[in-house]
Amino acid sequence: MIDFKNVVKTYPNGTVALKGISLHIDDGEFVFIVGHSGAGKTTLTKLLLGEEKPTSGHLIVGDYDLSRIPGYRVPHYRRELGVVFQDFRLLPNKTVFENVAFAMRVVGTPAKKIRRRVPAILNTVNLADKNGSFPDEISGGEQQRVALARALANNPKVIIADEPTGNIDPQMSLEIMNLLMKINKLGKTVIVVTHERELVNYYKQRVIMIKDGVIVEDKVGGTYE
């Protein structure tokens, strides 16, 4: 459960990126967040990641009150999230397998469990045959799928993807989006920030449109014009 209550975010330089957002997302929902450049979409995901704190208002994610979470608890909170960025952010000197395993190892997952789980996740994102490849040996779409596998590695409740298809060609985009839908079907809450109208309109999911830091539309089966 994600709950924004009148959330305002003002950056130190005075920019008011979010001007009172109230929003409820249930467990297991699939949500598109759309809006023009500079609307505040990335700011919203940063708040969800605990990277930035609301200037005022309340933000609750599961058992965590992000408006008042102390710094030392943020790592634990982040284990409940999986995050995917536009630019993949893979480690270039690690193989596909190691990139996913890395995410598990650094939160103290036993090696045995890592060896068992990584192939299963790579299978979920249809990359089982690429586990020994390095990031520069696979396509952008495949790299993004590795990033998605990494986001899933620690079995989070929520997946947040900020423009996951921004750097890949349309056909691959569709595949990524299908994967995100599949992950949603597996019971995870999925939040996708995107610019791509066709994709949004194609999937007929809940669409939240932000404009200049306020929600201007929130409709299930909505469209993005």
Partner: peptide, 17 residues
């Protein structure tokens, strides 16, 4: 830097980093 960034996103503890 890159490793640390990813560690932070996947929730590695500060002491671990």
């Amino acid at each position: 830097k890159r490793e640390i960034e990813i560690m932070r996103y996947v929730g590695a503890s500060k002491w671990f980093i």
